[in-house]
Design a protein around this nucleic acid. Structure first.
Lengths: 223, 223
DNA sequence: GTCGAAATAGACCAGTTGGTACGTGTTGGC
DNA sequence: GCCAACACGTACCAACTGGTCTATTTCGAC
């Protein structure tokens, strides 16, 4: 990912047989690298740091990964999976405005606890790598798409349940909400406060609330 | 800004007398560095690259800047000023929903032209430096605040003109809009498409439009 | 015109970085 | 129990990186 970022283009699994112990070591390496990269960025993380943080050795690192690019690719996969896994419990069965607000609350709480430190792991990877490694960009973009589709599904369920207007495009709303999340995180990181995240998500969610039909009018909005 | 990022803490101007020629050279260096950093990040930009891109020499670089940190600080200042300068014509006298939409259009056009490449210069600096250099974070955060205050002023003017509801908090809306911009840019960068930016800004602006009083109902929204 | 400060040139350096070489220990399947 | 493949340890290296040093040229003020 350093410059051109070749990174195994074709089929991903390098087909290297791993023993149970090997798989464990590999995992320790990726975890350590993921944390370091989240804190210091890809360019700001050295292989030696990964070696030390993971308690392994140089030969092990290069035994499991061809080069830094390969390691970064593994980190991207782990981080996107991690984030999705963290969101899933909330988004999996999202089907109401209340559920959406609970999701918002969980995020704001999370960001508030660490004062926005380091930002979203996927978001920071996106800014650093999108224009510097095409394979990385593809992975990250896929993660965003998948993330959006969870939101889209949830909003669609609200429509099906008749809670909100059926004519609006759920996918459009989903993109807007994800953008609010990423932008809110970025501002929260710079401000060291969860407030921008809270405001951004509130604003985005208000658009969905505005589509509510029947009772329970949005607590704020105009008209 | 590499690690701890000391960066001149107190009064900024190093009080070094500059001749006209010197100021020009210094400027060339900062410009070259800004472009390189926008494309490759701070950690991904070397002093030698700056030397070559600016057509200067090592001694000149270190004649005008104590170290890399100082150069990065200058770049931050230039980029935040650049962005503000680019937005000013639109935001300076922003006072109507129509003006807000024009601002949106200009941005979407800009992002579309380069397919989101490299993202917002200030945004990428924010993600890379916010947690790695406190002085950098402060500068960047100040830029965001100033940016928001332009939006806030514009929205306030709409309220004063009676175009939109007076009770809503203009600053809150401004934060949300800026978050939509940054998040939209990030997603546009990863997707290589201006669409996320367009959707994100539309969604954010719709919140302002929803506050419109009198005629000209928002073209989309529900109820 | 002179003179000190600013501007420029470019060789040089020590520490770091990604990556390799080569050797030893460990294990799981036959 | 044997042995090939996996797992691990560590010294080593060439290239790069931020930064320094000394010397030369240019220029603005007096």
């Amino acid at each position: 990912m350093t410059s051109a970022g070749a990174t195994s283009a074709g089929a991903e699994p390098p087909l290297r047989r791993l023993t149970a112990r090997g798989a464990l070591t590999r995992d320790r390496i990726v975890r350590a690298a993921a944390d370091l990269i989240h804190a210091n960025g890809v360019a700001g993380t050295t292989m030696d740091q990964v070696v030390e943080a993971s308690g392994t050795s140089k030969s092990q690192l290069y035994h499991y990964f061809d080069d830094k690019d390969a390691l970064v690719t593994a980190v991207i996969k782990m981080q996107t999976a991690r984030v999705m896994q963290l969101q899933e419990p909330h988004l999996e069965q999202l089907s109401s405005l209340q559920g959406l607000r609970r999701w918002r609350d969980a995020i704001v709480r999370f960001v508030d606890e660490r004062h926005g430190a380091n930002g979203c792991p996927v978001g920071s990877l996106a800014t650093e790598l999108s224009d510097r490694s095409e394979p990385a960009r593809i992975l990250i973009n896929a993660a965003f798409q998948s993330w959006e589709s969870y939101l889209t599904a949830g909003i669609s369920r609200m429509q099906e349940r008749g809670e909100i207007d059926r004519t609006s495009d759920a996918a459009t709303l989903a993109t807007g909400i994800l953008a609010a999340y990423q932008g809110g995180y970025l501002l929260s990181q710079a401000r060291r406060s969860a407030q921008p995240m809270a405001l951004a998500l509130d604003l985005a969610i208000r658009n969905v609330e505005a589509l509510a039909v029947g009772p329970k009018p949005a607590p704020d909005a105009a008209s």
